[in-house]
Design a protein around this nucleic acid. Sequence first.
DNA 1: GCGTAGAATGCAAACGTTTGCATTATTTTT
DNA 2: AAAAATAATGCAAACGTTTGCATTCTACGC
Lengths: 341, 341
Amino acid sequence: MAKKQATIQDIANALNITASTVSRALNDHPKISANTKEQVWTTAKKLNYQPNHIASSLRKGKANTIGMIVPRINRHFFSNVITGVESVLNPAGFNLIICQSDESFQREKQNLKTLITSRVAGILVSLSIETKEVKHLEKVQNSHIPLVLFDRISDEMNVSKVDNDDEFGSYELTKHLLNEGYRSFMWIGGPRNSIIYKNRYNGYKKALKEFKLNDTKFDCFEGTPVLDVAEQYIQEYIKQKELPEVIFAASDYMAMGVIQALQANKIKVPDDVAVAGYSNEPFASLISPKLTTVEQFSEEMGRSAAKLLLEEIESEEDTIIPRKTTLKPRLIIRESTIKKK
Amino acid sequence: MAKKQATIQDIANALNITASTVSRALNDHPKISANTKEQVWTTAKKLNYQPNHIASSLRKGKANTIGMIVPRINRHFFSNVITGVESVLNPAGFNLIICQSDESFQREKQNLKTLITSRVAGILVSLSIETKEVKHLEKVQNSHIPLVLFDRISDEMNVSKVDNDDEFGSYELTKHLLNEGYRSFMWIGGPRNSIIYKNRYNGYKKALKEFKLNDTKFDCFEGTPVLDVAEQYIQEYIKQKELPEVIFAASDYMAMGVIQALQANKIKVPDDVAVAGYSNEPFASLISPKLTTVEQFSEEMGRSAAKLLLEEIESEEDTIIPRKTTLKPRLIIRESTIKKK
DNA sequence: GCGTAGAATGCAAACGTTTGCATTATTTTT
DNA sequence: AAAAATAATGCAAACGTTTGCATTCTACGC
């Protein structure tokens, strides 16, 4: 019981050599004889020696741990980003500490503090919806910890970033709708102070402008990007006004809400009103009609962000030049926007 | 540039006191005068001092970090468990290191090793599908790290566990089908060497037995619990044999595959054939017909597992008595199994 | 056979905290 | 007023590694 973990010193004692030799042997240092290495390795195994990363981190002045802050882990998009991050970090010998801000600015600050005191080797952040200023991120830089922002980025920070070309994705989707022949549009999206929705809106507008459809008579609705909000909005809308030919919801969940509201009113999708979404949630291909949407390469985003971070961590330079990677999303055309010819 | 992080010693120097006093002041030790504490706190702030958790972990012999191994993070169920775990661990001052086994036994072993060398204070594990033996888990116990298994548990390990009462959930669902009046059944599920699917199968059988429906003429199919596998199976099945009144798929994804196969053959759900699933994935309420299924309280599972682990970590005892928590799932009846009266 | 190079290992300090015990200063008790 | 108790701080070792420099030993060249 309570047998202590074997240390490097125990191995040294067993072999009548010093801890330094053992340390070097374990790390396959070239100046240690093959014979000694062999002995060290076998006794290490015999004693069930497990290296103490804490001690080595302290001595080396840095941990093999990366911190990551996401708004919420149980969102399809973010959990895939995490998978991508891990796929790069683990082979490089790093562990991931994951924190959730829960879309709260306070928790985001708290998380950052924890990561700094844990002396992580680097930090990845996707900002919470509530986050309007970035002073807390500057603290990270003061602590000389490499920082990379992804998805929900901030223009104010001069650090490396990875984002999706939301404007492009939205533009492509709108073009598809226009090419199908739709001419009256409604836009539904999340709050436009979020950079994500701002960009999606801009792409939408840009495409419309190309077709001289500047001022559509139909509304643009902004709200919390969840199913219920969109559903209620459409339910109300139906009672009062005429519907457009197509509704572009800049979130799949909102699109789902729209579809449910329409179907509840016996309005056929896409025959009466077409619907498009954004981000290709898992359900998008499962519902009927299958939802036209835009796929974001979430795992790829994770990989890109992790790579940028790794490079900064392994860089010898004093000052690193921030870089930005923008990923092109891909249009996925499905039943919900196909016009009967 | 390259300014080092301030240490406890820097504060001590600034105030002409020793590091021990500073340490005690920062930890609000009762024997330090209010005056000194005040001074220490203000200079700590002035120097932007950030405690070094690595050093303190080393000295104290343990980290404030918990390790967690899940098969895959981007599954709705597991990401919710993680959320539950965090909600207990974070307030208690612990961080979470999350590892994915990717359903691979090798990676699970590798992950465990990493967590042991990181000297985490405790480990939470849900076993991979491939895991048949648990020797690697015994290593954790040899290292005197508290261990709690959840969801995919093993009977061979004498440790604390949290699981779902899958037999009960499956039994309840089958009872509902029987009460609706269905009398011919088909079972579709994941591999029965997985404890999860074994239990679900048992609950199903138990309910049938109560209605003297021991030997149904319809098949039981086992396969990888994903959409495609189930869809293909049904597609083939339709060509060859007559369908049952109801198909119980012990995974929502499989149920989805079943529904798609049926609908592709113009077979109406539930009018011609009813379908039920298991685990209440987000899409279950979005598809049409809405899917009858069983909800598992994933966040609650995370909270329970984290609480058990915390108790073990904080226990002073040398030997801890393993405990087991079993969560009752809840039947969710939706359109896909409602019989036209 | 002496000097030297190179190989292998040892020595000791360092990383930043924490903590048992010792010390000093102050107050209380008798 | 001396002894004892209390309060506040200091001293130094410890946690388990890593690493620059020193040391030992062997072999080689001339």
